[in-house]
């Protein structure tokens, strides 16, 4: 009996689907906690609050790289990011509304692209950084259009700050998180666990 049976099915396993949804819920919840604390502060900071928001924007990208790194299948990053947005818009409520889904899809595409180019086999620091940068850059185009940033004083500053934030918080932080999770053993049952040096189909039974 091989463990491979059924695994190469074209659709994702239910376990992977529930995991993506769970990541969406956890990050959705954390963003929500974060935004509760954030809103008051942003009002106090006035114009600087908006910029500070740019600095932290990268953190909103986390769901995609984590999902891709754990499940290692095409489109997982996009779907995970969209699900996180669904949780936010339809379960928690967001001032951006359903357009957040569009932003999330773009974000997901950007974040997943570098991993897709590596055929979901390479997960080094540079790739995570590229993922964060691409995610932030794609979503920047969308937000700039939505909030009519074209022609404002800060366009370039905003772009640079957001991409930098994407690299650090949406890329490198994702790797820190994924590595920490991998060490806990919680993701052993997913593709990332199977990729960690275990030869499938030949485990030696240990006798105590």
């Amino acid at each position: 009996m091989s463990t491979e049976l059924g695994r190469r099915a074209p659709r994702l396993a239910l376990k992977d689907v529930v995991l993506m949804v769970t990541l969406g819920v956890v990050f959705g919840f954390l963003y929500w906690v974060f935004v509760q604390a954030w809103n008051g502060l942003a009002v106090l900071m006035g114009p600087a609050g908006d910029l500070a928001q740019h600095v932290l924007l990268g953190a909103w990208l986390l769901a995609a790289p984590v999902a891709v790194a754990v499940i290692r299948r095409p489109l997982v990053g996009v779907i995970a990011e969209v699900i996180a947005a669904v949780v936010e818009v339809f379960f928690l409520g967001s001032p951006v509304g359903p357009l957040l889904l569009v932003a999330a899809a773009l974000q997901g595409i950007g974040s997943e692209l570098p991993f897709a180019l590596g055929r979901y086999r390479h997960f080094g620091w540079a790739r995570y950084a590229a993922s964060g940068a691409a995610g932030a850059a794609l979503v920047f185009v969308f937000t700039a259009f939505r909030d009519a940033w074209w022609g404002t004083d800060l366009l370039t500053v905003r772009l640079l700050v957001q991409v930098a934030s994407g690299v650090v918080l949406g890329g490198l932080l994702a790797k820190v998180l994924v590595d920490a999770l991998a060490r806990t053993g919680a993701v052993d049952g997913f593709a990332i666990g199977r990729a960690q040096g275990v030869i499938p189909g030949r485990y030696e039974r240990r006798v105590r």
């Binding site: 376990k15 529930v18 949804v21 769970t22 919680a186 993701v187 049952g189």
Partner: peptide
């Protein structure tokens, strides 16, 4: 929090 949630997801 994530570890607990992922185990719960499985």
């Amino acid at each position: 929090l994530l570890v607990g949630a992922i185990r719960g997801a499985e």
